[in-house]
Amino acid sequence: MSSPMPGVVAWAVIGYVSVLLAVRFWLVGGAVVDRLVNHMGLWSIAALLMYRCASSPTLDDPANQLALGCVLMTTTYLYVIGRLVSADAEPDTVRRHQRTATLLASAATASVVLTAASARYSGRSVDLRLIRDALGIGCAFAIPFTYNTVVFTRRCLGTLRDAETPPAARIVGIGLIGSNAVLWGALALSLSQPATGWLEGPQLSLVQAAFALWVAIDSTLLAIPLVGELVQRAGMDRATRTCRRLLPLWRDLTAAVPEIVMPVDVRHGSDPATRLLRMTVEIRDAMLHLGAYLPAETGATQRNTVREPKSDRGLADYAHRLMRAAQARKTGLPPTRAGAAPPLPVVAHDFDAELAHLIALARIWPRAKAAVE
């Protein structure tokens, strides 16, 4: 096997990209864009493997010709992603764009193979200094390659111009644009190499090295969202950790008022943010229902609550009374008061403030439960 890239480097890139792609298939793949990225990764690995199978670094080797075809197939997915308005694009639209781009890439690959076959039939090597070879390969490969990557780059630029794009997405967009620029530069140098005589060596060898670098960079950038997914799968994200802290409080209150538990939406039930919102609403509803069962405050507690409404002492007393109210309703005792329920110890004007209050209540809840029981 002959290649302008050292074997250790080439196989290291292939192994690295394969691991990242396997993780992507494991973690994501439901959205349209994720499926396109995953299939693009498969074609990029195929291109790298074809380069490694080549016995010669020139275009006379059929493996290198097929490798160029795999590169074109990889860029067709860039084109389709660039044409998508959003991840919710209609499947028929995606399939139509993908089908068209695949046909063009297949035709371009056939042109490269036919040009090489024509040269071989004439008893010569493929030489880009000849007009016929240069037009056949340059038009077949360079034009769709450049067009596909330009369409994707315009998509990235549009994302960067959007003021609402998060910083992490901006970093990924800049990196993807930069990697495309590396490909363009390598392709331009390779095609101009026969005419200028600069950079001696096999024609289009720079494309192979630049493509391997492009695959490694883009695979790394597109793996950044996987970190958040892995953290979420491990239960270490903020929403999941907060749900675990609220779970004992939620479990005891909803056991006393089971009718307020909302049915789980199968589409979003596993989403940590949705789960946290649902738990918060259900805890708050249970507290309202248990208001009529709350034992009366003592005079000392009332005075302390007036002076320090947010103190741990006042919150601990409320937790004890709430636990007694939950036990009373669970055992079927009648309410201790008629009319409107007493106000809750805190009034939150936004979700974050309310969540902070519930977390504080959940923190002292195990002690209050142990004291009452």
Rank of each mutant, 00 (worst) to 15 (best):
A31Y: 10
M287Y: 05
P342T: 01
E308P: 02
A234M: 10
I81Y: 05
V231T: 13
Y77K: 08
W184G: 06
R324A: 14
L206V: 03
R124E: 12
G228L: 05
S56V: 01
F211D: 05
P62F: 05
F211P: 02
C156F: 00
E200K: 10
L135A: 06
R284D: 05
I81E: 04
T76S: 09
A348M: 11
P4K: 14
V28Q: 07
R337G: 09
N304H: 11
E373D: 15
R241C: 00
H289C: 08
E259G: 03
V347T: 10
R337Q: 12
H357W: 02
L277A: 15
Y51T: 07
P166V: 14
A286P: 02
E282Q: 12
A108S: 14
R324G: 09
S122E: 06
T149L: 13
I224N: 06
A209Y: 00
L221R: 13
P248G: 03
A119V: 01
V261D: 04
D88A: 13
A360V: 04
T331K: 08
P62Q: 03
G138D: 02
N180H: 09
A292I: 11
P272W: 09
R154F: 09
Y51V: 07
G201A: 02
G299H: 08
E354F: 01
R275N: 11
M236S: 09
L189R: 13
V266S: 07
S18V: 04
I283H: 02
G299Y: 03
V37Q: 04
T301P: 06
D271Q: 14
A110D: 10
V346F: 10
T240E: 06
L68D: 01
H268Y: 09
G332F: 13
S311L: 10
G175Y: 15
L344T: 07
L361G: 02
A234P: 07
T242K: 07
L247A: 12
C139K: 00
A186I: 04
T298R: 11
L72M: 01
A188F: 08
V227M: 04
I131E: 10
R245G: 06
E229D: 15
R95C: 03
M262T: 07
V281N: 06
A108G: 03
L183W: 09
A328K: 12
A300T: 08
R238T: 09
I224Q: 10
A47Q: 02
M279R: 04
V264H: 09
N38T: 09
T153H: 15
A223N: 05
W184N: 05
I224D: 11
R132Q: 05
A110I: 12
P258C: 02
R321L: 14
S219T: 11
A328G: 11
V37P: 01
A325I: 01
G7A: 11
R24K: 14
P202R: 06
Q232G: 06
W198L: 12
R278T: 10
T93S: 14
L189K: 07
P194G: 04
G7Y: 01
R241V: 00
D352Y: 12
